Simulated assay, not measured.
Amino acid sequence: MAAQKRTSVTKSKTTPKKKAPAKRKSSGGIKTPWKLIIGLLLILLSPFYYGYVVKAFTSTWQWIKDIGEDPHYRTYKSFNIRIPNKYHIHGIDVSYAQGKIDWQRVKNMEEDSVRISFAFIKATEGLITVDPYFKRNWREAPKMGIVCGAYHFFHPEKNGVWQARFFLQNVTVEKGDLPPVADVEKLYGVKPEVMRKELKAYLGHIYAQTGVRPIIYTGLSFYADYLAGYFDEYKLWIANYHQPHLQIAEKSNWQFWQHSDIARINGIGHTVDFDAFRGDSLAFQKMLVH
């Protein structure tokens, strides 16, 4: 065994070893350059990237939820109502019924670009009633950048001029406001022609004192029965609930549509009327008092 080992050693000394081929320097090969790695990390960690992913996911999920719904009249979960989507300027109208309102939360609420841009606020009613929350709402809502207009709940059985004077004792119409509103919904036992006479007197006095032509608010059926054709020079705010389209002639002079009376709004403890403006942002600006 010893001899064999020595022979093996001797052979190994005399047998020349083959040189291993020289290793070629890598020019990059399949290795990922460090700059590319850093670039990918910056993209993946970017808030813009995640914002894009979240937006894509949200849009897809909304599309799935909307299957089977009218694409032009879908449900907005946070507002708890269906909203016609051809309108881009949305608002609410409030009174003492909504209690104390946190207008900051109202302003911050948004779902899929739907947000509160304007508010009609009840000021007065008849000849002696001032809404107990009017002054607070009229002061606080504009601080949040919400455009406001004041409305008077009109009583046809009472003198129209006196009601207008009472309204103006409590409301100062200023530049940047929405025009004042006459809310007329009932006859209160008087004939339609009496209602129209007193309403015309009310509207005329407001216009004479402020230089601003008021808006008329009413329900769709009341308008059709008693007002259509009599006050065509006045812009209209029509109530017609839970419909994908306002059921009124396009040629009518309506500008606002109160399409729901059961909306849920952050910062308000009771259901709220929800409104849409007919035009675009330029038309809305032209609507304001100048």
Rank of each mutant, 00 (worst) to 15 (best):
I116D: 01
D112I: 06
D93E: 09
R139C: 13
K186P: 08
K158D: 09
K135G: 12
Y87S: 02
H155P: 05
Y188N: 14
P192N: 02
E110I: 09
A119Y: 00
L168S: 08
E157G: 15
G145H: 15
Y87V: 05
P132S: 11
P179A: 05
N137G: 04
N108P: 12
V173H: 03
Y151T: 04
P192F: 03
Y133C: 08
E140Y: 09
A141C: 11
M109Q: 14
F134N: 02
E185L: 08
G99P: 01
D102V: 02
F166V: 02
D183F: 04
N170F: 07
L187Y: 06
R165L: 11
A150N: 07
E125N: 04
D177I: 07
E157T: 14
V171C: 02
A164P: 04
A97L: 12
H90D: 05
N159C: 08
D183L: 04
Q169V: 13
G91F: 01
T129I: 12
L178P: 00
H88K: 15
W162V: 09
W138Q: 02
I101N: 00
H152P: 04
P179Q: 05
V173G: 06
F120D: 00
I121S: 09
G145T: 12
D131R: 06
P142V: 08
H88I: 11
E125C: 10
Y188C: 14
D183K: 08
V173L: 12
Q163G: 09
V181F: 02
G149P: 07
I89C: 02
E157W: 13
D131C: 10
C148E: 00
Y188S: 15
G160H: 03
M144R: 13
I121H: 05
T124V: 08
H90T: 08
E185D: 06
P132Q: 12
G145R: 11
K100L: 10
F166N: 00
Q163L: 13
L168T: 11
L127R: 14
W138N: 00
N170R: 06
N159T: 03
K143S: 01
V171W: 01
W162E: 15
H90P: 01
T129N: 07
V161L: 14
K100G: 12
E125M: 11
V94S: 05
P192W: 02
A182T: 06
I128S: 15
E110K: 10
V190K: 09
D177P: 04
F166S: 01
K186D: 09
I121P: 01
M109I: 06
M109V: 04
I128N: 15
R136T: 12
S95H: 05
Q169L: 10
Q169W: 09
E110C: 10
M109P: 03
Y96R: 10
K175R: 14
F166I: 05
A97Q: 15
K100E: 10
E111K: 12
D131I: 03
P132N: 11
K158T: 11
W162G: 13
P132V: 09
H90L: 04
H90Y: 02
